[in-house]
């Protein structure tokens, strides 16, 4: 143990420091006050910083921008000057104790709004097509009745060097309806099908017809897009089509037989 005799030395001009091993020596009261002030200030600063970061942490209670609705100003028609002086600050509106009838009224309004939204949902069976997962879901309400593997758009780009036309092979997204139901559909090859193969575009329609490419059935959803069969069944589950939705034969037949024209098709 080392004991400092520094305090006992009169020759030193250094300020007197207390030595805890000697005991009994207390610094002057003004120094103690300054030390406590510094300690208190530091602790306060740390507390403020902690509070600042705590308030910025997620899920904290933030003032609601529309909280003024809770307690709307009563004197709307009053002069502006009066309104300025009498209106409570915005924060006060949040603190206003809500009455339980207010909560009950809001709950009832929300339930009514939810009911109005739910009323817009498709009434019977409808299709949901997941273009990322290459799936077709046959649904009723929130229940899935059948899940089918499909092939959706490849997302590739084709440019015709001669005409400068450009195609993006995406499956369109949004809400559609089944507009037509075809048996033994005949694919009338569009221009891009010839350009993609490096072939000349035929002048007559007969040159475009290609039977057997679309399977036994096709459901038209508008804008030239169909849900149809495919020869390339091993590619089901991958994004390989030119925008149409390809299905296996059995799944396609099920949809053809069960879904009427007008059925909603939601593609996302």
């Amino acid at each position: 143990m080392t004991i400092s005799y520094h305090r006992l030395s009169n020759s030193s001009n250094k300020p007197v420091r207390p030595n805890r091993f000697l005991g009994g020596a207390q610094p002057p009261s003004d120094r103690r006050f300054r030390r406590r002030l510094a300690l208190g200030g530091g602790a306060g600063l740390v507390l403020i910083c902690a509070l600042f970061f705590l308030l910025r942490t997620p899920n904290s209670s933030q003032p609601v921008p529309t909280a003024a609705v809770i307690a709307p100003p009563l004197s709307v028609a009053a002069p502006v000057a009066v309104a300025k002086t009498r209106q409570p600050p915005p924060a006060a509106a949040v603190v206003t104790a809500p009455s339980s009838p207010e909560i009950a009224r809001l709950r009832a309004k929300n339930a009514a709004l939810s009911a109005r939204i739910q009323a817009l949902a498709p009434a019977g069976d409808y299709l949901v097509i997941d273009t990322a997962g290459n799936k077709v879901l046959l649904r009723r309400g929130e229940n899935t009745k059948a899940e089918m593997i499909a092939s959706c758009g490849s997302g590739n780009v084709l440019e015709d060097p001669t005409s400068g036309r450009r195609w993006v092979f995406d499956t369109p997204r949004g809400q559609f309806r089944i507009q037509s139901k075809l048996t033994n559909p005949l694919w009338m090859k569009p221009d891009w099908a010839f350009i993609e193969e490096g072939e000349a575009i035929p002048k007559n329609l007969a040159g475009r017809a290609e039977p057997g490419m679309m399977g036994d059935y096709a459901l038209g959803i508008g804008q030239g897009y169909f849900i149809h069969g495919t020869l390339y069944t091993r590619m089901l589950g991958r994004n390989v089509s030119h925008g149409c939705v390809r299905l296996g034969d059995k799944d396609l037949e099920q949809l053809y037989r069960t879904l009427p024209i007008g059925t909603r098709v939601i593609i996302f």
């Binding site: 209670s61 609601v64 529309t66 909280a67 609705v69 809770i70 949040v94 603190v95 206003t96 104790a97 809500p98 339980s100 207010e102 909560i103 809001l106 709950r107 309004k109 929300n110 709004l113 939810s114 939204i117």
Partner: peptide, 16 residues
């Protein structure tokens, strides 16, 4: 109670 009202108000606006 105030928090619950605020949540309900937000829900109301979102539902609208």
């Amino acid at each position: 109670g105030a928090d619950e009202t605020a949540d309900l108000l937000i829900d109301n606006q979102l539902l609208t």
